[in-house]
Deep mutational scan, measured.
Amino acid sequence: MVYKIRDKETGKVYEVTIDEETNEITVYDVKTGKPVKTVNMTIEELKEAGYEVEPV
């Protein structure tokens, strides 16, 4: 599923895909559409880390 996340401190917005089964999150560069990095976190962990998470 695709989400937009926003860093509450910097205001930067990222587009991510989240595999609900493995909790693998792939972060994409919004301008190029290319993957930047992959992390292993849940949506709740993202929120605790200071991100706003919205489904696209």
Rank of each mutant, 00 (worst) to 15 (best):
Met1Glu: 08
Met1Thr: 12
Met1Phe: 12
Met1Asp: 07
Met1Gly: 11
Val2Gln: 11
Val2Gly: 08
Val2Glu: 06
Val2Thr: 11
Val2Leu: 12
Val2Phe: 12
Tyr3Met: 08
Tyr3Cys: 08
Tyr3Lys: 01
Tyr3Asn: 02
Tyr3Ile: 08
Tyr3Trp: 10
Lys4Arg: 15
Lys4Glu: 07
Lys4Phe: 12
Lys4Thr: 10
Ile5Val: 10
Ile5Asn: 00
Ile5Lys: 00
Ile5Gln: 00
Ile5Gly: 00
Ile5Tyr: 06
Arg6Gly: 01
Arg6Ser: 06
Arg6Glu: 05
Arg6Asp: 01
Arg6Thr: 14
Arg6Lys: 12
Arg6Val: 13
Asp7Trp: 03
Asp7Phe: 05
Asp7Gly: 01
Asp7Glu: 08
Asp7Ser: 08
Asp7Arg: 01
Lys8Cys: 10
Lys8Phe: 05
Lys8Pro: 13
Lys8Ile: 10
Lys8Gln: 06
Lys8Thr: 08
Glu9Val: 14
Glu9Phe: 12
Glu9Gly: 09
Glu9His: 13
Glu9Pro: 01
Thr10Val: 01
Thr10Ser: 09
Thr10Glu: 01
Thr10Arg: 02
Gly11Phe: 02
Gly11Arg: 02
Gly11Glu: 02
Gly11Met: 03
Gly11Ile: 00
Gly11Cys: 07
Lys12Ala: 13
Lys12Asp: 11
Lys12Gly: 05
Lys12Met: 14
Lys12Tyr: 09
Val13Pro: 01
Val13Lys: 03
Val13Ile: 12
Val13Asn: 04
Val13Cys: 11
Val13His: 06
Tyr14Gly: 00
Tyr14Leu: 03
Tyr14Ala: 01
Tyr14Glu: 01
Tyr14Ser: 02
Tyr14Thr: 01
Tyr14Asn: 01
Tyr14Phe: 09
Glu15Leu: 15
Glu15Arg: 10
Glu15Pro: 05
Glu15Cys: 15
Glu15Gly: 08
Val16Pro: 00
Val16Lys: 00
Val16Ile: 14
Val16Asp: 00
Val16Leu: 10
Val16Ser: 01
Val16Gly: 07
Val16Glu: 00
Val16Phe: 08
Thr17Gly: 04
Thr17Asn: 06
Thr17Glu: 06
Thr17Asp: 03
Thr17Ile: 11
Thr17Cys: 08
Thr17Leu: 09
Thr17Ser: 10
Ile18Met: 07
Ile18Cys: 06
Ile18Phe: 15
Ile18Asn: 01
Ile18Trp: 15
Asp19Val: 06
Asp19Trp: 06
Asp19Lys: 08
Asp19Ile: 06
Asp19Leu: 05
Glu20Trp: 14
Glu20Ala: 12
Glu20Leu: 13
Glu20Val: 13
Glu20Ile: 13
Glu20Ser: 12
Glu21Met: 11
Thr22Asp: 03
Thr22Gly: 06
Thr22Asn: 13
Thr22His: 13
Asn23Glu: 06
Asn23Val: 06
Asn23Asp: 07
Asn23Gly: 14
Asn23Leu: 07
Asn23Ser: 10
Glu24Phe: 11
Glu24Ile: 15
Glu24Lys: 11
Glu24Asn: 10
Glu24Cys: 14
Glu24Leu: 14
Glu24Val: 14
Glu24Ala: 10
Ile25Tyr: 03
Ile25Gln: 01
Ile25Met: 13
Ile25Leu: 11
Ile25Asn: 00
Thr26Met: 05
Thr26Gly: 01
Thr26Phe: 07
Thr26Trp: 07
Thr26Val: 10
Thr26Tyr: 06
Thr26Asn: 04
Thr26Cys: 06
Thr26Pro: 00
Val27Asn: 01
Val27Thr: 03
Val27Tyr: 14
Val27Ala: 05
Val27Arg: 01
Val27Glu: 03
Val27Ser: 03
Tyr28Gln: 03
Tyr28Met: 10
Tyr28Pro: 01
Tyr28Lys: 06
Tyr28Thr: 07
Tyr28Ser: 04
Tyr28Glu: 01
Asp29Asn: 05
Asp29Pro: 01
Asp29Val: 02
Asp29Glu: 06
Val30Thr: 13
Val30Trp: 13
Val30His: 12
Val30Ile: 14
Val30Gln: 12
Val30Leu: 10
Val30Ser: 14
Lys31Ile: 15
Lys31Met: 14
Lys31Pro: 09
Lys31Glu: 15
Lys31Trp: 14
Lys31Cys: 15
Lys31Ser: 14
Lys31Gln: 15
Lys31Asp: 15
Thr32Leu: 05
Thr32Ser: 09
Thr32Tyr: 04
Gly33Leu: 05
Gly33Glu: 03
Gly33Lys: 08
Gly33Ala: 04
Gly33Trp: 06
Gly33Val: 01
Gly33Gln: 06
Gly33Met: 07
Lys34Glu: 12
Lys34Gln: 11
Lys34Thr: 09
Lys34Val: 09
Lys34Ala: 11
Lys34Arg: 09
Lys34Pro: 01
Lys34Ser: 08
Pro35Met: 08
Pro35Asn: 04
Pro35Leu: 11
Pro35Trp: 13
Pro35Thr: 07
Pro35Gly: 03
Pro35Tyr: 13
Pro35Glu: 08
Pro35Asp: 03
Val36Leu: 14
Val36Trp: 10
Val36Phe: 10
Val36His: 05
Val36Ser: 05
Val36Thr: 08
Val36Gly: 04
Lys37Gln: 09
Lys37Gly: 12
Lys37Ser: 08
Lys37Pro: 04
Lys37Arg: 11
Lys37Val: 13
Lys37Ala: 15
Lys37Met: 15
Thr38Lys: 10
Thr38Tyr: 09
Thr38Ala: 05
Thr38Leu: 07
Thr38Pro: 03
Thr38Asn: 06
Thr38Glu: 04
Thr38Cys: 13
Thr38Asp: 05
Thr38Arg: 11
Thr38Gln: 07
Val39Asp: 04
Val39Ala: 06
Val39Cys: 15
Val39Lys: 04
Val39His: 05
Val39Tyr: 14
Val39Asn: 04
Val39Leu: 15
Val39Gln: 04
Val39Ser: 05
Val39Gly: 05
Asn40Tyr: 15
Asn40Phe: 15
Asn40Ile: 14
Asn40Trp: 14
Asn40Ser: 10
Asn40Gly: 07
Met41Phe: 09
Met41Ser: 06
Met41Gln: 04
Met41Trp: 07
Met41Tyr: 05
Met41Val: 08
Thr42Trp: 00
Thr42Gln: 03
Thr42Pro: 02
Thr42Glu: 01
Thr42Lys: 05
Thr42Asp: 04
Ile43Val: 07
Ile43Phe: 07
Ile43Asn: 01
Ile43Met: 11
Ile43Leu: 13
Glu44Ile: 07
Glu44Cys: 09
Glu44Ser: 10
Glu44Ala: 12
Glu44Phe: 08
Glu44Lys: 10
Glu44Gly: 11
Glu44Thr: 10
Glu44Met: 10
Glu45Gly: 08
Glu45Leu: 06
Glu45Phe: 05
Glu45Lys: 07
Glu45Val: 04
Glu45Asn: 08
Glu45Thr: 06
Leu46Trp: 04
Leu46Asp: 00
Leu46Asn: 00
Leu46Tyr: 04
Leu46Ile: 08
Leu46His: 00
Lys47Pro: 02
Lys47Val: 12
Lys47Asp: 05
Lys47Arg: 13
Lys47Glu: 09
Lys47Ile: 13
Lys47Tyr: 11
Glu48Ser: 12
Glu48Ala: 11
Glu48Met: 13
Glu48Lys: 12
Glu48Thr: 10
Ala49Val: 07
Ala49Asn: 09
Ala49Phe: 09
Ala49Leu: 14
Ala49Tyr: 10
Ala49Trp: 12
Ala49Cys: 15
Gly50Ile: 05
Gly50Gln: 03
Gly50Ser: 03
Gly50Met: 04
Gly50Pro: 01
Gly50Asn: 06
Tyr51Gln: 01
Tyr51His: 03
Tyr51Cys: 07
Tyr51Asp: 01
Tyr51Pro: 00
Tyr51Val: 03
Tyr51Phe: 12
Glu52Trp: 06
Glu52Asn: 04
Glu52Gln: 06
Val53Lys: 02
Val53His: 02
Val53Asp: 02
Val53Tyr: 04
Val53Thr: 03
Val53Gly: 02
Glu54Asp: 08
Glu54Tyr: 14
Glu54Cys: 14
Glu54Met: 13
Pro55Thr: 09
Pro55Lys: 09
Pro55Arg: 11
Val56Pro: 08
Val56Phe: 11
Val56Cys: 10
Val56Thr: 10
Val56Ser: 09
Val56Met: 12
Val56Lys: 05
Val56Leu: 12
Val56His: 09
Val56Tyr: 10
